[in-house]
Each structure stands twice: as C-alpha cells, then as structure tokens.
Amino acid sequence: MEILTTTGLCKTYGIGETKVEALKDVTFSVSKGEFVSIVGPSGSGKSTLLNMLGALDFPTSGNVFIDGRDIFTMNEEELSVFRRRNIGFIFQAYNLVPELNVEENITLPLLLDYKKPDQQYIDEIVDILGLADRKHHLPNQLSGGQQQRVAIGRALSARPAIILADEPTGNLDSKNSKDVINLLKLSVDRYNQTLIMITHNHNYASFADRVLNVEDGIVTELGGAVR
C-alpha cells in the first residue's frame, strides 16, 4: 500500500538570471512501513524535497499525496491538523520546545490535538528511547543524543503516517548517531512506521529499505538493502 506519492514535483527559486531549480520533476512513491533514506551532496535539493513532503514549503508545481490526500489542496488550518496527525518531524537541530519537559515535548502533538495521551504507549516509547529517568528534565539539561531521542519520541507519539527526518544525526557523535539510527530503525519495525530520512552518511543509508539519490534537483533510485 502506497502511503506517499509525489508526482511531477518542481520547485524554482528566484526568476530570470537568479533562477535556481531546486527540484526538477520529482516523481516517486513510498509504501507503508518502508524506511527510505535520501542521500546527495550539499545543495542538491534534499532538504527542499523533505520540506515539500512535510508541507513545510510549497512546490512550484506538482503534487504530494499522503495517505491518499493531496496535501497542497488543504488550507493552512487543515494542513496543521493534518501535520500533527500524520507527519512526525525530526530535525538536525532537535528543535525541542525549551520550556517544556521531556514528557511534555513528546506528547506535544497529541496535546495540540486536544487528545489525552495514551500513557501506556508514551511510557513505552520513553522506555525504548532510554529516557525513563529523564521524563521531567528540560531539554537544556540533556545531552545532544538525549535531545534527539526526545525528538524521535515526539515524532512517534501521534502514530503518524510518516516520519520525516532531516539529518537526525548531523549534530551527534558516532556513538549517539548509531543509537539514534538504531532507535529509528527499531521504531519503524516495531510500530510499522514509514520513515524518510536525509543523511550524509552512507553507512546509515544502508540501514534503509531503499535509498534515493538527489543530485541537482533530480531524484534517482539507488536501490537498497534487501529486506
């Protein structure tokens, strides 16, 4: 079952002389439960692509369907609801809410949806992520690796259709990076989540079911590890 499909996605910045084509006619699809990594040199358009998939930015032309819905036909209000229910973000710079403690940060998407968090599920995530004794800490009392694990928790908490991670290990040392990747992989398998992750590290890319390569705004399939 295809959870995500893009058709003819184009993004152009500027006009005339300064025109830059960040994405050129990108078409691909991702099935439910797949772990897709995106690789490519700096400035190739990886982040632009991921922003489009998460509806953080709008394409010049083309469509993105998530769970069968054309996300760019929604208005801002519908989009925000869609985002908190269907998309989990993991950023390179963690971007946790500094005033909220670990537990609150993790449950934030649910709280925003006025839902009562399923405490058992949340506790389970917190346990898996190794944050059980950090539940009431604030982000600035945590190490980088711990902060990124909180971000993973936040992305998982609403059981979204798809998780988008933009270089989640970019700020971490190799041990922490490995932990984070393992956790991501674990959660994808355990909760049958779909994950699309940008990475620079080809080692980590190989964890994925499929690898997409972006170069000069063109996306090509590289194939991946056999499941």
Binding site: G54, L56, E76, E77, S80, V81, R83, R84, R85, I87, F89, F91, N95, V97, L108, P109, L112, D113, R154, A158
Partner: peptide, 15 residues
C-alpha cells in the same frame, strides 16, 4: 523560529 517549530509539529493558526 520557535513559532515555526510549533507550526511544524502541527500547531494550527488558531492555536
């Protein structure tokens, strides 16, 4: 930036 993150996580305009 903070408000941007909140929007990314799914905060609606009204919220």
């Amino acid at each position: 930036k903070y408000l941007g993150v909140m929007r990314a996580v799914g905060m609606s305009g009204k919220q």
